[in-house]
């Protein structure tokens, strides 16, 4: 396949950053030459280990995710019966824990753990960035920082879903959806911490803030805390869980959060640019892809041969 200008630039930069040898460069370029122009054919035909083939998240990120989601769910679990303490299910729940005071204490303790996780995460990002910079391997496009390209990707992707594009756009390690989700979570967590601290220390906040602000601040925080929490819960349940558990292709579960690895199929479909980097950085992946491409001879293919059967038994071979 012929890479887009953008992908070509990105690949060159990656090889330069990795100080890829000329031989490896040639190998990568050969592989790209052998790829079908229609990437769909590629990700439809690779064979993936469902628990993941290619590295994506470090152990730190996985621990942070684990801590964040467990504290998040438990915070929701203890926060909702405090907020909706009128509801018929809330009072037995609170009594079960030992009264609303206990529920509130658990809630605050969990909040402290969540704040620790946030700090841990920021420290990881900072340290990771510094290390990558020192090694000369930092690439802004590979981070979660939103860029203009994400807007274009989103538009292109929507057009693909609508049927007016043949392929999904070439997206990087973090696609627009993940960036939205990441910053929504970061913003939401900050709002929760801020508003929660306003409940705990209303007097301190009032003395810090410019005079007159406290009148609105305190009540806006009281409004924000449950609203943000419910929004987060709904987003997690109906969007995030759908994306990582229920969506076709991810069902029954995407293993990345446990293994730190992403399947080849998923990487090529939604993170093609990162897959190019994988080819540079993972010789094993090059070997796999070479075998596959040689076996199927997909070079130059954009369309499936006319009349090829797609029945299950024929597929199985």
């Amino acid at each position: 396949m012929k890479l887009s200008k953008e992908a070509e630039k990105l690949l060159q930069k990656c090889m330069q950053q990795n100080r890829t040898s000329d031989q490896d460069r040639k190998e990568v370029e050969d592989l790209i030459e052998m790829m079908p122009q229609d990437r769909v054919l590629l990700y439809k035909n690779v064979i993936s280990n469902p628990i993941g083939d290619l590295p994506r998240y470090s152990i730190h990120i996985r621990i942070q995710h684990l801590l964040t989601f467990s504290t998040f769910l438990l915070l929701a679990f203890t926060g909702l019966p405090v907020h909706f303490s009128d509801a018929f299910w809330a009072q037995p729940f609170n009594s079960m824990l030992g009264g609303i005071e206990v529920t509130r204490t658990i809630h605050r303790t969990l909040a402290a753990v969540m704040i620790f996780t946030m700090i841990y995460h920021i420290a990881t990002l900072a340290a990771g960035t510094i290390i990558q910079l020192a090694r000369g391997r930092f690439d802004m496009r590979r981070t979660v920082i939103p860029m203009y390209k994400d807007l274009q990707d989103m538009k292109e992707d929507v057009m693909y879903f609508a049927g007016t594009r043949k392929q999904r756009p070439e997206m990087d390690k973090f696609m627009y959806k993940q960036k939205i989700h990441y910053f929504a979570a970061a913003f939401g967590n900050s709002v929760m911490v801020l508003s929660g601290s306003a409940f705990l220390f209303p007097d301190i906040w009032a003395s810090i803030l410019p005079s007159g602000w406290a009148y609105y601040f305190q009540d806006i925080m009281r409004l924000a805390h449950p609203h943000e929490a419910l929004l987060a819960l709904v987003v997690i349940a109906f969007w995030h869980w759908y994306n990582v558990h229920l969506a076709p292709g991810r069902f029954p579960m995407q293993w990345t959060y446990l293994t730190g690895k992403i399947t080849r199929e998923h990487q090529i479909e939604e993170h093609f640019l990162e897959y190019l980097r994988n080819l540079v950085e993972q010789p094993a992946e090059r070997a796999y892809l070479r075998t596959l491409l040689q076996k199927y001879d997909l070079r130059g293919q954009g369309q499936l041969p006319e009349g090829a059967p797609a029945s299950a038994s024929a597929d199985r071979q």
Partner: peptide, 12 residues
């Protein structure tokens, strides 16, 4: 079966 007329490739 793809409605976009791109069926899965058959291994040779």
């Amino acid at each position: 079966r793809s409605k976009r007329k791109r069926k899965r490739i058959i291994p040779k």
